[in-house]
Design a protein around this nucleic acid. Structure first.
Lengths: 350, 350
DNA sequence: TTGTATGCGTTATCAT
DNA sequence: ATGATAACGCATACAA
């Protein structure tokens, strides 16, 4: 079955390709009612579907959105096994398809820019997650397409940003622990890079500590990577060598999972011996045993909003959008934080 | 910065567009060494990158692969929160990009076919996960592009299939439980549709039961959906109303997680009171507490192989590939299965 | 070895 | 209201 083209339709309907194009694009003031009907009839019969490549050429818009997520260290695989990204993409895809756009998912090779892909494919817009070298963003600005950054603190009005107040989130989490009566609070975190999400959460942690007039002890921050493995190692260390630490803020749920496992391995109990609070509220958080108390952000919603933004930016270029959009955050109490004091505002959750 | 076209390059290099095209496509027998150098020079200077849309038009190949994954029941979102799909896609993307292809990720709306997208985008090939109505596959065959089905039992030589021997997997899991000395073994499973993955695992379960000369008790199979929630409900029911059941085979890790949680909620212990074995070995399996004993399949590898197959099929149309490829399966012993007997070949794992 | 010309499927301009 | 036709960016058959 050879693919039907606009010419085939035109011929079969006894009209010009222009006429077909008109009805296709809803320019109903340019064609008669009968023509419209006849053409539509033929389109149905021939199962004609327009070719986006051809359309892209002449209209200079591809209806394609690039979505970039970080890769593993060897740059050979996406970090899609981090449920956080999966959930976001899930949100993005739905919104995009709903609006007639398609999504090209990719990582970007070490040192390479995203220019190639965006130019090759004539991307109408892009959504980026992760942190990249400065040059990467500079390159991106040259192609003049709407770009939405998720969880980025790049301060450049060229980009729109969707995120959360990570500093506040870190503060919230730590304060929650403090309100539960904990005083020696550990922090397990990924690499703290300046102006990064991780640093903000760290800053929030420090603020809460200081606000409570506690002593900020650098020995209590376990910094490495945002991974289950690091959480595991840190959890073991805390349970083994830091009996004074009674609560831990892990700056991602995945890290919290690792921490809990590490703590338990050394025979200690969560939350009875050590409380743990996470960050993100990924899908697995409620499934974990024990269910994880965490700082919830609506991940899927984040994806949806990112998609909405690119689309709006594309279709209504003049619209003035806020440079940054922050989604709400809140503590979800489950069962990994235990109140030490009677006065604590926090219970064991349900 | 206006995007450079082949014409710009030709003009700047003082040659024809044909010459540029030649060097672009490596037709080095058609151009002189100097021309090649000069053109490449200019390409670099102008930062020229070919437009795939235009190329797609003339070459009739898009370097685009469609990847389809199932959606939630309301058809508004991908089931990407199931880590299983994330991991597969991760594998697919890496392989694809490595070979110069890009990936369009999408779900497909209820009742719709995938024809539209594949025709619109001139897809070179597609990789499908999930089960669809018969008509869906019939439609697909009309577009004559290589299609790889992941975990499908559609028996049609048009499609290539990548999968595992699910029946054997179900058998393996159940036999593992039996060898550990269990006799009353429950099955928690998704909807058993004929010729589906789930049914095969169920069949394997039955085979192992029969082989051991146990009584197959339909009351021990808890069938609903392949979800954490179903696992949870079934786990509760087993722990609450079926004291005779000492082991459970959950036909997906996610389901096993739910089951374990449900069992624990009723005050029973895993594996001391009830053993649980899962299926898939998703990334989270080792992170769970307790770490899940499960039937391991190499999920990422599955994605990689699927990508390899489409590519091979596309680039070497005559190649005769096996219609179906099965990946190996094996039990990964962790800590959710307990041996009841001295003679059991199975310990508590490490 | 190089260049010219045509066509891929579509939209848009301009006549009619 | 309708229809030629030029363009979009590229690859290629053919001519030079």
């Amino acid at each position: 079955m050879k693919k039907a083209t606009i010419k085939d339709v035109a011929k079969a309907a006894g009209v010009s390709t222009a006429a077909v194009s008109y009805v296709l694009n809803g320019k109903h003031d340019k064609v008669s009612k009968e023509t419209i009907e006849r053409v539509n009839q033929v389109i149905g019969d021939l199962n004609y579907i327009p070719d986006f490549s051809a359309r892209s050429l002449v209209k200079n818009q591809s209806k394609l959105i690039g979505v970039v997520i970080p890769q593993t260290e060897n740059y050979r695989q996406l970090i899609l096994e981090n449920p956080f990204y999966s959930e976001i993409i899930s949100g993005i895809e739905g919104k995009l398809r709903e609006n007639g756009y398609h999504l090209i998912l990719s990582g970007v090779n070490r040192g390479e820019s995203y220019l190639d892909l965006s130019i090759q494919r004539n991307l109408d817009g892009a959504i980026l997650m992760g942190i990249y070298p400065e040059q990467f963003y500079e390159d991106l600005k040259r192609i003049k397409i709407p770009i939405v950054l998720i969880d980025s603190y790049i301060n450049d009005s060229y980009f729109r940003r969707i995120g959360i107040d990570d500093e506040y989130g870190g503060y919230l989490a730590t304060r929650h622990l403090i309100q539960a009566g904990h005083t020696n609070i550990g922090l397990i975190t990924g690499a703290i890079r300046k102006e990064g999400v991780v640093e903000k959460r760290f800053l929030g942690y420090k603020r809460a500590i200081r606000e409570a007039n506690f002593f900020y002890n650098p020995d209590y921050v376990f910094e490495d990577s945002m991974s289950f493995e690091h959480g595991l190692a840190a959890g073991r260390e805390i349970a083994g060598k830091h009996p004074e630490i009674t609560a831990v803020f892990a700056s991602a749920d995945l890290v919290a999972f690792g921490a809990i496992k590490g703590i338990m391995e050394l025979g200690k109990k969560v939350p009875d011996d050590i409380s743990v609070i996470g960050f993100d509220d990924i899908y697995m958080a409620k499934m974990f045993v024990p269910p994880l108390t965490t700082v919830k952000q609506d991940i899927t919603e984040k994806g949806i909003m990112a998609a909405e933004q690119v689309i709006r930016l594309i279709e209504n270029a003049e619209v003035e959008l806020a440079e940054e959009m922050l989604l709400p955050l809140r503590i979800v109490e489950r069962q990994t934080v235990k109140a030490l004091t009677e006065t604590g505002a926090v219970g064991r959750g349900s």
